[in-house]
């Protein structure tokens, strides 16, 4: 098991946001966490990334306990989050955003090679390399956010609603890229409200509701279970 989350409880002050979450992810998988707004998806990813502390429960990555590991050491282990809303550094150029993404890999030659390879994947970013991040369109920002995440050589990529606010054609493109990144060996934990799309590329899925897993299983099964889709995901 690459990632194992056991009985995770997270609070925001008095708000009990995650109430004993359990899920896992195998090396090479795409696992999706789906659920309505406010279900606790982003909270889960932020707890994994070390931005939020678990009050109870255990997080394991590659067999090691990372429950209390500081954020920068989690990144160093190869668990990289591409946050909700892209969170591009608007005052930095596209190049600088990528360089900051490689913060823990300060080898100049390696950074150049990595930038070349993300530019191959995202030619639009290459055209805009010297533009400030804040001037990019939503789709370009999402590509930059993913590219920036790839700069730190993720073993496990945590993607928080990569399709949010994008036109359908861009959503298709982003999901194709996600699948491609996975094909090249990176495991992916994908958080989505767009359940249809997420389930169509995922191996397995967990449905979250108010901080708990209410359903889990094979992605295809959940996708083709009309009752499930109706009840938890607001229909097709």
């Amino acid at each position: 098991m690459m990632l194992n989350v056991q009985n995770l409880h997270v609070y925001y002050g008095a708000i009990h946001a995650l109430k004993g979450l359990n899920f896992h992810l195998e090396q090479g998988e795409i696992v999706t966490l789906i659920g309505a707004n406010g279900a606790g998806k982003s909270t889960t990813l932020n707890a994994l990334s070390g931005l939020l502390a678990a009050r109870e429960g255990k997080l394991e990555f590659e067999g090691e306990d990372i429950t209390r590991t500081p954020a920068q050491d989690i990144v160093r282990r190869g668990v990289i989050q591409v946050p909700e809303g892209r969170k591009i550094f608007a005052t930095l150029t596209v190049m600088e955003n990528l360089e900051v993404g490689a913060y823990l890999h300060p080898d100049k030659a390696q950074i150049e090679k990595d930038i070349e390879s993300v530019f191959k994947r995202f030619p639009r970013l290459k055209e805009r390399r010297n533009q400030l991040g804040g001037t990019l369109s939503g789709g370009e920002q999402q590509m930059l956010a993913i590219a920036r995440g790839l700069m730190s050589h993720p073993k496990l990529l945590l993607l928080d609603e990569p399709s949010m606010g994008l036109a359908p054609i861009l959503v298709e493109q982003i999901f194709e890229i996600i699948r491609d990144i996975n094909d090249q060996g990176t495991s992916i934990l994908l958080v989505e409200q767009n359940a249809q799309m997420a389930l169509s590329i995922a191996d397995r899925a967990y449905v979250l509701e108010t901080g708990q897993v209410v359903l889990e299983g094979d992605a295809q099964e959940i996708l083709h279970n009309p009752m499930v889709m109706e009840a938890y995901l607001g229909g097709h």
């Binding site: 990334s49 931005l51 954020a71 990289i80 969170k87 005052t91 930095l92 913060y103 920036r148 730190s152």
Partner: peptide, 11 residues
């Protein structure tokens, strides 16, 4: 610009 996201970069 953004401390939380900077931490996600390993800073």
């Amino acid at each position: 610009y953004d401390k939380q996201t900077a931490r996600l970069m390993g800073i």
